[in-house]
Amino acid sequence: MVLTDLKQGDTAIITDLSKVNILVQQRLMHMGMIEGVQVVTKRSMPFGGPLFLESHGQNISIRRNEASRIRVEQL
């Protein structure tokens, strides 16, 4: 499954980031969001806006289309 399949408040582990835009991928890496790391979808912005994610105590926001390229495994 991919990150956008998760419901609000679900926790998952990132399994594959390779399909994500390279700039976003590198930023995610800088913020410690790499394969094997836990992520929680906290909420999403209206009208198909970006997702609000949490990963080990830090909050970040990325667009839905990028999130849909992140493969995850739900916990």
């Binding site: 835009n21 700039l23 976003v24 930023r27 995610l28 913020m31 970006p50 609000f52 830090q58 909050n59 970040i60 926001s61 990325i62 667009r63 990028e66």
Partner: peptide, 11 residues
């Protein structure tokens, strides 16, 4: 060029 968005939301 594609548009990208990623931002850290500090406490």
């Amino acid at each position: 060029e594609t548009s990208v968005f990623i931002i850290e939301l500090p406490p």
